[in-house]
Simulated scan of single mutants.
Amino acid sequence: MSKFGDLGNFLVLCILLGIASSSHGQLQLNFYAKSCPQAEKIIQDYVQKQIPNAPSLAAALLRLHFHDCFVRGCDGSVLLNFTSSTKNQTEKVAVPNQTLRGFSFIDGVKKALEAECPGVVSCADIVALVARDSVVVTGGPYWKVPTGRRDGRISNASEALANIPPPTSNFSSLQTSFASKGLDLKDLVLLSGAHTIGVSHCPSFSSRLYNFTGVWGKKDPSLDTEYASNLKMKKCKSINDNTTIVEMDPGSSSKFDLSYFQLVLKRKGLFQSDAALTTSATTKSFINELVKGSLKQFYAEFGVAMEKMGKIEVKTGSAGEIRKHCAAVNT
Protein backbone atom coordinates (compact mmCIF):
# COMPACT_ATOMS: atom_id res chain seq x y z
CA MET A 1 0.00 0.00 0.00
CA SER A 2 1.28 3.53 -0.80
CA LYS A 3 2.20 6.00 1.89
CA PHE A 4 -0.87 8.00 0.83
CA GLY A 5 -3.04 4.96 1.52
CA ASP A 6 -1.44 4.61 4.93
CA LEU A 7 -2.02 8.29 5.59
CA GLY A 8 -5.65 7.97 4.54
CA ASN A 9 -6.17 5.02 6.85
CA PHE A 10 -4.50 6.93 9.67
CA LEU A 11 -6.79 9.92 9.15
CA VAL A 12 -9.86 7.69 9.09
CA LEU A 13 -8.69 6.08 12.32
CA CYS A 14 -8.20 9.49 13.91
CA ILE A 15 -11.69 10.55 12.85
CA LEU A 16 -13.20 7.35 14.27
CA LEU A 17 -11.31 7.78 17.53
CA GLY A 18 -12.43 11.39 17.62
CA ILE A 19 -16.06 10.32 17.24
CA ALA A 20 -15.68 7.73 20.00
CA SER A 21 -14.01 10.14 22.40
CA SER A 22 -16.46 12.96 21.68
CA SER A 23 -19.39 10.60 22.30
CA HIS A 24 -17.80 9.65 25.59
CA GLY A 25 -17.18 13.27 26.40
CA GLN A 26 -20.80 14.32 25.91
CA LEU A 27 -21.70 13.04 29.35
CA GLN A 28 -21.65 15.97 31.72
CA LEU A 29 -22.63 16.86 35.25
CA ASN A 30 -26.09 18.46 35.46
CA PHE A 31 -26.88 17.55 31.86
CA TYR A 32 -30.57 18.26 32.52
CA ALA A 33 -30.00 21.68 34.11
CA LYS A 34 -31.98 23.43 31.36
CA SER A 35 -34.17 20.68 29.89
CA CYS A 36 -35.42 19.35 33.24
CA PRO A 37 -33.93 21.34 36.15
CA GLN A 38 -35.61 19.29 38.87
CA ALA A 39 -34.68 15.89 37.40
CA GLU A 40 -31.94 14.87 39.82
CA LYS A 41 -33.86 16.23 42.81
CA ILE A 42 -36.95 14.25 41.79
CA ILE A 43 -34.84 11.10 41.64
CA GLN A 44 -33.14 11.85 44.93
CA ASP A 45 -36.42 12.58 46.69
CA TYR A 46 -37.97 9.36 45.38
CA VAL A 47 -34.97 7.34 46.58
CA GLN A 48 -34.92 9.02 50.00
CA LYS A 49 -38.61 8.26 50.45
CA GLN A 50 -38.59 4.64 49.28
CA ILE A 51 -35.22 3.08 50.13
CA PRO A 52 -35.46 3.43 53.95
CA ASN A 53 -38.52 1.16 53.74
CA ALA A 54 -36.61 -1.42 51.69
CA PRO A 55 -32.86 -0.87 52.30
CA SER A 56 -31.90 -4.17 50.64
CA LEU A 57 -32.91 -2.59 47.33
CA ALA A 58 -29.78 -0.44 47.41
CA ALA A 59 -27.61 -3.45 46.62
CA ALA A 60 -30.10 -4.65 44.01
CA LEU A 61 -30.14 -1.29 42.21
CA LEU A 62 -26.35 -1.10 42.28
CA ARG A 63 -26.21 -4.57 40.72
CA LEU A 64 -28.77 -3.53 38.12
CA HIS A 65 -26.47 -0.69 37.05
CA PHE A 66 -23.50 -3.05 36.76
CA HIS A 67 -25.43 -5.59 34.69
CA ASP A 68 -26.73 -2.85 32.43
CA CYS A 69 -23.31 -1.37 31.73
CA PHE A 70 -21.61 -4.68 30.95
CA VAL A 71 -23.99 -5.43 28.07
CA ARG A 72 -24.04 -2.89 25.21
CA GLY A 73 -22.84 -0.23 27.62
CA CYS A 74 -24.89 1.80 30.10
CA ASP A 75 -27.95 2.17 27.88
CA GLY A 76 -30.86 0.79 29.90
CA SER A 77 -31.04 -2.33 27.70
CA VAL A 78 -31.38 -4.53 30.79
CA LEU A 79 -34.76 -2.92 31.49
CA LEU A 80 -36.45 -4.05 28.28
CA ASN A 81 -39.14 -6.70 28.69
CA PHE A 82 -39.30 -10.18 27.27
CA THR A 83 -40.50 -10.16 23.70
CA SER A 84 -42.88 -12.59 22.04
CA SER A 85 -40.16 -13.76 19.68
CA THR A 86 -38.10 -16.64 21.05
CA LYS A 87 -35.33 -15.53 18.70
CA ASN A 88 -34.92 -12.28 20.58
CA GLN A 89 -35.35 -12.79 24.26
CA THR A 90 -34.15 -9.72 26.12
CA GLU A 91 -31.38 -9.46 28.68
CA LYS A 92 -33.91 -9.80 31.49
CA VAL A 93 -34.43 -13.51 30.85
CA ALA A 94 -30.73 -14.40 30.69
CA VAL A 95 -29.50 -16.56 33.57
CA PRO A 96 -27.27 -13.83 35.10
CA ASN A 97 -30.26 -11.48 35.23
CA GLN A 98 -33.00 -13.76 36.50
CA THR A 99 -32.43 -12.67 40.10
CA LEU A 100 -32.21 -8.95 39.32
CA ARG A 101 -34.57 -6.71 41.28
CA GLY A 102 -35.56 -3.07 41.17
CA PHE A 103 -37.37 -2.85 37.83
CA SER A 104 -40.60 -1.52 39.36
CA PHE A 105 -38.54 0.98 41.34
CA ILE A 106 -37.02 2.33 38.12
CA ASP A 107 -40.51 2.48 36.60
CA GLY A 108 -41.70 4.54 39.57
CA VAL A 109 -38.87 7.03 39.15
CA LYS A 110 -39.52 7.25 35.41
CA LYS A 111 -43.22 7.96 36.00
CA ALA A 112 -42.36 10.83 38.35
CA LEU A 113 -39.94 12.30 35.81
CA GLU A 114 -42.37 11.94 32.91
CA ALA A 115 -44.92 13.92 34.91
CA GLU A 116 -42.40 16.75 35.30
CA CYS A 117 -40.76 16.77 31.85
CA PRO A 118 -42.00 14.16 29.37
CA GLY A 119 -39.51 12.48 27.07
CA VAL A 120 -36.43 14.17 28.49
CA VAL A 121 -34.66 11.95 31.04
CA SER A 122 -33.33 8.62 29.81
CA CYS A 123 -33.87 5.34 31.60
CA ALA A 124 -30.10 4.74 31.39
CA ASP A 125 -29.44 7.92 33.39
CA ILE A 126 -32.14 6.94 35.88
CA VAL A 127 -30.41 3.60 36.52
CA ALA A 128 -27.05 5.33 37.05
CA LEU A 129 -28.42 8.03 39.37
CA VAL A 130 -30.65 5.68 41.36
CA ALA A 131 -27.71 3.33 41.98
CA ARG A 132 -25.67 6.16 43.46
CA ASP A 133 -28.47 7.79 45.44
CA SER A 134 -29.73 4.53 46.96
CA VAL A 135 -26.23 3.62 48.18
CA VAL A 136 -25.82 7.10 49.69
CA VAL A 137 -29.15 6.88 51.52
CA THR A 138 -28.01 3.66 53.22
CA GLY A 139 -24.83 5.35 54.45
CA GLY A 140 -22.54 4.34 51.61
CA PRO A 141 -20.23 6.37 49.35
CA TYR A 142 -21.18 9.23 47.06
CA TRP A 143 -19.77 9.50 43.55
CA LYS A 144 -20.20 11.83 40.61
CA VAL A 145 -22.69 10.75 37.95
CA PRO A 146 -22.29 12.70 34.70
CA THR A 147 -25.49 12.37 32.67
CA GLY A 148 -26.60 12.53 29.06
CA ARG A 149 -26.88 8.81 28.33
CA ARG A 150 -29.49 7.74 25.81
CA ASP A 151 -31.43 4.49 25.80
CA GLY A 152 -30.59 1.58 23.54
CA ARG A 153 -33.17 -0.19 21.41
CA ILE A 154 -31.55 -3.62 21.35
CA SER A 155 -31.51 -6.21 24.13
CA ASN A 156 -30.41 -9.81 23.65
CA ALA A 157 -30.28 -12.52 26.30
CA SER A 158 -27.31 -14.18 24.59
CA GLU A 159 -25.24 -11.01 24.96
CA ALA A 160 -25.96 -10.83 28.68
CA LEU A 161 -24.81 -14.42 29.11
CA ALA A 162 -21.64 -13.68 27.15
CA ASN A 163 -20.70 -10.38 28.79
CA ILE A 164 -21.68 -10.51 32.46
CA PRO A 165 -18.89 -12.21 34.45
CA PRO A 166 -20.39 -15.12 36.43
CA PRO A 167 -19.66 -15.71 40.14
CA THR A 168 -17.72 -18.83 39.07
CA SER A 169 -15.15 -16.74 37.19
CA ASN A 170 -11.43 -17.31 37.69
CA PHE A 171 -8.93 -14.46 37.67
CA SER A 172 -8.07 -14.74 33.99
CA SER A 173 -11.69 -14.51 32.84
CA LEU A 174 -12.37 -11.60 35.21
CA GLN A 175 -9.35 -9.72 33.91
CA THR A 176 -10.41 -10.30 30.31
CA SER A 177 -14.02 -9.33 30.97
CA PHE A 178 -13.18 -6.09 32.73
CA ALA A 179 -10.44 -5.15 30.27
CA SER A 180 -12.94 -5.52 27.42
CA LYS A 181 -14.97 -2.76 29.07
CA GLY A 182 -11.98 -0.47 29.60
CA LEU A 183 -11.64 -1.34 33.28
CA ASP A 184 -8.34 -2.30 34.90
CA LEU A 185 -7.41 -4.59 37.80
CA LYS A 186 -7.85 -1.86 40.39
CA ASP A 187 -11.36 -1.25 39.07
CA LEU A 188 -12.00 -4.98 39.34
CA VAL A 189 -11.07 -5.01 43.02
CA LEU A 190 -12.93 -1.82 43.87
CA LEU A 191 -16.13 -2.77 42.04
CA SER A 192 -16.03 -6.21 43.66
CA GLY A 193 -16.19 -4.26 46.91
CA ALA A 194 -19.88 -3.72 46.16
CA HIS A 195 -20.29 -7.26 47.54
CA THR A 196 -20.04 -5.66 50.96
CA ILE A 197 -23.81 -5.14 50.77
CA GLY A 198 -26.62 -7.39 49.63
CA VAL A 199 -27.35 -11.09 49.32
CA SER A 200 -27.08 -13.95 46.85
CA HIS A 201 -28.91 -17.19 46.12
CA CYS A 202 -27.34 -20.61 46.75
CA PRO A 203 -26.92 -21.65 43.08
CA SER A 204 -24.37 -18.87 42.63
CA PHE A 205 -21.89 -20.66 44.85
CA SER A 206 -23.26 -24.07 45.95
CA SER A 207 -20.92 -25.95 43.59
CA ARG A 208 -18.10 -24.74 45.83
CA LEU A 209 -19.73 -26.67 48.65
CA TYR A 210 -20.92 -29.87 46.99
CA ASN A 211 -19.33 -30.66 43.63
CA PHE A 212 -16.39 -28.41 42.91
CA THR A 213 -15.01 -29.00 39.39
CA GLY A 214 -17.84 -31.46 38.83
CA VAL A 215 -16.64 -33.96 41.45
CA TRP A 216 -19.46 -34.81 43.86
CA GLY A 217 -18.52 -34.30 47.50
CA LYS A 218 -15.51 -32.14 46.66
CA LYS A 219 -15.26 -28.71 48.28
CA ASP A 220 -13.46 -25.75 46.75
CA PRO A 221 -10.07 -25.82 48.54
CA SER A 222 -9.87 -22.02 48.32
CA LEU A 223 -12.92 -21.72 50.59
CA ASP A 224 -12.40 -21.69 54.37
CA THR A 225 -13.44 -25.09 55.74
CA GLU A 226 -15.38 -23.76 58.73
CA TYR A 227 -17.21 -21.21 56.59
CA ALA A 228 -18.07 -23.89 54.02
CA SER A 229 -19.43 -26.21 56.72
CA ASN A 230 -21.54 -23.42 58.17
CA LEU A 231 -23.02 -22.65 54.75
CA LYS A 232 -23.91 -26.33 54.20
CA MET A 233 -25.41 -26.86 57.66
CA LYS A 234 -27.29 -23.59 58.14
CA LYS A 235 -27.90 -22.12 54.69
CA CYS A 236 -27.62 -24.15 51.49
CA LYS A 237 -28.49 -27.58 52.90
CA SER A 238 -28.93 -29.01 49.43
CA ILE A 239 -27.28 -28.31 46.11
CA ASN A 240 -30.81 -28.04 44.70
CA ASP A 241 -31.76 -25.16 47.01
CA ASN A 242 -32.83 -22.34 44.68
CA THR A 243 -34.64 -20.14 47.18
CA THR A 244 -32.41 -19.53 50.21
CA ILE A 245 -30.57 -16.23 50.26
CA VAL A 246 -27.18 -15.71 51.87
CA GLU A 247 -25.37 -12.53 52.90
CA MET A 248 -22.36 -11.82 50.72
CA ASP A 249 -20.70 -10.07 53.67
CA PRO A 250 -21.96 -12.02 56.73
CA GLY A 251 -22.74 -9.82 59.72
CA SER A 252 -22.12 -6.62 57.80
CA SER A 253 -24.28 -6.91 54.70
CA SER A 254 -26.17 -3.69 55.40
CA LYS A 255 -23.02 -1.61 55.86
CA PHE A 256 -20.85 -0.35 53.03
CA ASP A 257 -17.52 -1.04 54.69
CA LEU A 258 -14.21 -2.88 54.33
CA SER A 259 -15.47 -6.12 55.88
CA TYR A 260 -15.85 -7.81 52.49
CA PHE A 261 -12.16 -7.40 51.70
CA GLN A 262 -11.17 -8.64 55.16
CA LEU A 263 -13.24 -11.78 54.60
CA VAL A 264 -11.75 -12.36 51.15
CA LEU A 265 -8.27 -12.40 52.69
CA LYS A 266 -9.51 -14.98 55.20
CA ARG A 267 -10.76 -17.22 52.35
CA LYS A 268 -14.36 -16.40 53.24
CA GLY A 269 -15.46 -14.70 50.04
CA LEU A 270 -18.76 -16.25 48.97
CA PHE A 271 -18.02 -16.62 45.25
CA GLN A 272 -15.21 -18.17 43.27
CA SER A 273 -14.80 -14.73 41.70
CA ASP A 274 -14.14 -13.32 45.18
CA ALA A 275 -11.48 -15.95 45.90
CA ALA A 276 -9.99 -15.31 42.45
CA LEU A 277 -8.97 -11.82 43.56
CA THR A 278 -6.36 -13.34 45.88
CA THR A 279 -4.79 -15.49 43.14
CA SER A 280 -3.13 -12.48 41.52
CA ALA A 281 -0.32 -10.67 43.31
CA THR A 282 -1.54 -7.39 41.86
CA THR A 283 -5.17 -7.63 42.98
CA LYS A 284 -4.23 -9.14 46.35
CA SER A 285 -1.91 -6.19 46.91
CA PHE A 286 -4.77 -3.78 46.14
CA ILE A 287 -6.96 -5.59 48.69
CA ASN A 288 -4.27 -5.40 51.35
CA GLU A 289 -3.87 -1.68 50.72
CA LEU A 290 -7.61 -1.14 51.10
CA VAL A 291 -7.80 -3.14 54.33
CA LYS A 292 -4.89 -1.20 55.82
CA GLY A 293 -6.33 2.12 54.66
CA SER A 294 -9.31 4.15 55.74
CA LEU A 295 -12.98 3.78 54.88
CA LYS A 296 -12.86 7.32 53.52
CA GLN A 297 -10.15 6.34 51.06
CA PHE A 298 -12.10 3.26 49.95
CA TYR A 299 -15.19 5.40 49.37
CA ALA A 300 -13.20 7.86 47.27
CA GLU A 301 -11.59 5.16 45.13
CA PHE A 302 -14.83 3.20 44.79
CA GLY A 303 -16.49 6.38 43.55
CA VAL A 304 -13.87 6.88 40.86
CA ALA A 305 -14.33 3.28 39.67
CA MET A 306 -18.12 3.66 39.61
CA GLU A 307 -17.91 6.86 37.58
CA LYS A 308 -15.60 5.08 35.15
CA MET A 309 -17.96 2.09 34.88
CA GLY A 310 -20.92 4.40 34.30
CA LYS A 311 -19.27 5.67 31.09
CA ILE A 312 -18.89 2.28 29.40
CA GLU A 313 -19.96 2.47 25.75
CA VAL A 314 -22.59 5.13 26.45
CA LYS A 315 -24.93 6.34 23.75
CA THR A 316 -25.11 10.12 23.51
CA GLY A 317 -26.10 12.82 21.06
CA SER A 318 -28.48 11.39 18.48
CA ALA A 319 -27.75 7.73 19.20
CA GLY A 320 -30.49 5.60 20.70
CA GLU A 321 -33.61 7.27 22.09
CA ILE A 322 -35.27 8.58 25.24
CA ARG A 323 -37.79 5.90 26.12
CA LYS A 324 -41.29 6.85 27.26
CA HIS A 325 -41.46 3.64 29.27
CA CYS A 326 -38.29 1.96 30.51
CA ALA A 327 -39.50 -1.56 29.75
CA ALA A 328 -40.27 -0.94 26.08
CA VAL A 329 -38.73 0.83 23.11
CA ASN A 330 -40.67 3.72 21.63
CA THR A 331 -43.07 2.82 18.85
Rank of each mutant, 00 (worst) to 15 (best):
C36P: 04
F66Q: 13
A124V: 05
Q38I: 08
S22T: 12
G76E: 06
S35V: 02
T90Y: 03
N81W: 00
F70I: 09
C69W: 03
V93N: 01
S23F: 12
Q50D: 13
L113F: 00
S35K: 10
L61K: 07
A33Q: 15
D45A: 12
F70M: 14
D45N: 13
V121Y: 05
C36G: 09
C117S: 04
Q48L: 06
K110I: 01
Q50N: 15
K34A: 15
A59D: 01
F70G: 07
E91M: 14
K34H: 11
L80P: 07
P37D: 02
I15A: 15
A33M: 09
D68E: 08
E114D: 10
Q44M: 05
D125I: 06
L80I: 15
L113N: 04
G76Y: 11
C123P: 02
V47Y: 06
G18Y: 03
P118I: 08
R63I: 10
N88F: 13
A112P: 04
C123Y: 00
L62D: 14
D107I: 06
C14A: 14
V95R: 10
F105I: 07
A94Y: 00
A33I: 12
A59V: 00
T83G: 12
E91C: 11
H67E: 13
A39W: 07
E116F: 04
E40H: 07
A94D: 00
K110D: 10
G108M: 01
Q44F: 06
N88R: 10
D107R: 12
L57P: 11
K41P: 02
K92W: 04
R101Y: 04
R72W: 13
G18P: 08
E91Q: 15
L79M: 14
T99W: 08
A94V: 04
F66I: 13
G102D: 08
Q38D: 12
L61M: 06
N81T: 09
P37F: 07
T99R: 09
I15R: 09
K49I: 05
A59M: 01
F70R: 13
K34M: 13
Q48P: 00
E91V: 11
A39N: 01
P52S: 05
Q38T: 09
A94H: 05
L17T: 12
C14Y: 11
S84N: 14
N88M: 12
L16V: 15
